[in-house]
Design a protein around this nucleic acid. Structure first.
Length: 491
RNA sequence: CGGGGUAUAGCACAGCCCGGUUAGUGUGCCUGCUUUGGGAGCAGGAGGUCGCAGGUUCGAAUCCUGCUACCCCGACCA
């Protein structure tokens, strides 16, 4: 079979690029740093959205929509927030074009300069908290639990499809609470939602934990994160949930009157996952033949490929295929019968493997005669011939098996690539030779964290949420450490 | 924003150093026939202002200048 992807062993980065493009997920656009998400890629994103959206609604959130543009003055109110995002903001300065007086094309009309410039949102805390001020007077107005699905812009120097693009799609939850405890609980709840989604739907195991001060969201008191391990041993931050304290309430003057008649600042959270999850999904499961999708997120779960010589045979096979398809649909399984005569079966096999369709059925004249179908699993690349009778039940179960199998496989990979070390030498050695997650003691200081980052490129991915922490001594300074933290080189 | 590279048919590339027929190869596309259980074969055909703007020259894809875009490596980051 002709390989269309660069093998992972040769270049993981190239393999990733090849896969995203060849599987029809996304491509680079005419706009620097901005991708076009193609129909197949978008279909996966839509499935993610649907599941997450349901999870948000079940946890008491409602969707709303806030503006793309944020007045510069709003943005500059929260000092840390500005510092974090200022360097990557797109700015709108004018509102009109005019014909170029010197000839062809159009130019910005200098007379149409905005009184106050707008920032294209890199995130929406400021516009939302400015709005919440008007919505909140009393504790009876709380909590407010809102989510928005939106695009945001962060002007990145170097971009990679899905993993880091100048414009990306995401959801951002923004909640307002009467008490500190309730806000913290909200941030923790949403982290659990993300972890659940990652593990149960994406089949991607994640570590949950706190970010260190240097990795924290700009403007947050605490940032919680889910961290996943990619096949090349690098970590990918896949979702974050922030406890914002009263930082945004203070600068936007959002106060409420408590039951006791006291005026207090509102407590806040925000949380988000983005199209970066697409990158996480790809790099968790896929192989040198292409994408491997968990059945729960696959736009097409089963594809049926007819194999035939004569038109007449095709007709009979498609009849059989349609029968199987409608039986499967009763189980809620999404099926495609590919009777397109543009390509031969071999081409289709390769193509559906590239696109990660979990189960492929092939039906030929021989099967018609024997009452069988050939079933191929994408996750194991194995094939078997099975009776048509009861195939729908068999496949419904198989899809669950596949979902579990790829989760288990990813979990095993993570276990094999998680190492515990006690000395800095050992740390460097493991990092160089194996990569992956490294559990080590750290004294809690910014200086030590920075030193390790400078010397090894590894960062603290998270301080795990651990009910049973193991105290020890920092591998670099020997100072006391409350618990092990997770290091890795990250995307 | 530094360092390197690339720009020629839908896509992937050769040609450029050393200027000179009608700019070529693979793949994809169109037509026909044969094929179809792992990316089919043969025959015929369509498709290019050689990234853009100048310059040198009798003549430029090729040499020179400027610009733009993209890719890779760094710094920054979800």
């Amino acid at each position: 079979m002709a390989k269309v992807l660069t093998p992972r062993s040769e270049s993981y980065a190239q393999w990733y690029n090849d896969l995203v493009i060849k599987a029809g997920l996304a491509e680079n656009s005419a706009v620097r740093g901005c991708m076009v998400i193609k129909p197949y890629g978008y279909a996966i994103w839509e499935k993610m959205q649907r599941v997450l959206d349901d999870m948000f609604k079940e946890t008491g959130h409602q969707n709303a929509y806030f503006p793309l543009f944020i007045p510069k003055s709003f943005f500059s109110k929260e000092a840390d927030h500005v510092e974090g995002f200022a360097k990557e903001c797109a700015v709108v300065t004018h509102y009109r074009l005019k014909n170029n007086p010197d000839g062809k094309g159009v130019v910005v009309d200098p007379d149409a300069k905005l009184e106050e410039e707008y920032i294209v949102r890199p995130t929406s805390e400021t516009i939302i908290w400015n709005t919440y001020r008007d919505w909140i007077q009393s504790y009876r107005d709380l909590p407010i639990k809102i989510n928005q699905w939106a695009n945001v812009v962060r002007w990145e120097m170097r971009t990679r499809l899905f993993l880091r693009t100048a414009e990306f799609l995401w959801q951002e939850g923004h909640t307002a609470h009467a008490t500190r405890e309730e806000a913290i609980e909200e941030a923790e709840t949403m982290l659990k939602v993300y972890a659940d989604f990652a593990e149960k739907y994406m089949a991607m195991p994640v570590l949950q934990g706190y970010k260190t001060a240097s990795e924290r969201f700009a403007g947050a008191v605490e940032t919680l994160t889910i961290e996943a391990l990619m096949q090349d041993g690098k970590a990918l931050q896949s979702g974050t949930s922030h406890f914002l304290g009263q930082n945004f309430a203070r600068v936007f003057d959002v106060r409420f009157q408590s039951k006791e008649g006291k005026e207090e600042f509102v407590w806040a959270t925000s949380w988000g996952v983005s199209t970066r999850l697409m990158g996480a999904l790809i790099m968790s499961h896929s192989d040198d033949n292409g994408l491997v999708l968990p059945p729960k997120l696959a736009p097409v779960q089963v594809v049926i490929v007819p194999i035939y010589k004569k038109e007449e045979e095709l007709k009979q096979i498609v009849e059989q295929a349609d029968k199987i398809a409608s039986a499967l649909k009763k189980h809620g399984v999404s099926v495609k019968v590919d009777d397109d005569d543009k390509h031969k079966p071999g081409w289709k096999f390769a193509q559906y493997e590239l696109q990660g369709v979990p189960v492929r059925l092939a039906i030929g004249p021989r099967d018609l005669q024997n009452g069988t179908v050939e079933l191929a699993r994408r996750d194991t690349l194995t094939k078997e011939v099975l009776p048509v009778e009861g195939i729908d039940n068999r496949i419904a179960e198989l899809l669950d098996d596949i979902q579990n199998n790829i989760y288990q496989r990813a979990l095993n990979f993570r276990k094999e690539n998680t190492h515990t070390v006690d000395t800095y030498d050992e740390f460097k050695k493991v990092l160089n030779e194996k990569g992956g997650f490294i559990l080590a003691h750290w004294d809690g200081s910014d200086e030590t964290e920075e030193k390790i980052k400078q010397e090894t490129k590894a960062t603290i991915r998270c301080i795990p949420i651990d009910s049973n922490p193991e105290p020890g001594k920092c591998m670099v300074t020997g100072k006391p450490s409350r618990q092990r933290v997770v290091f890795a080189v990250s995307y």
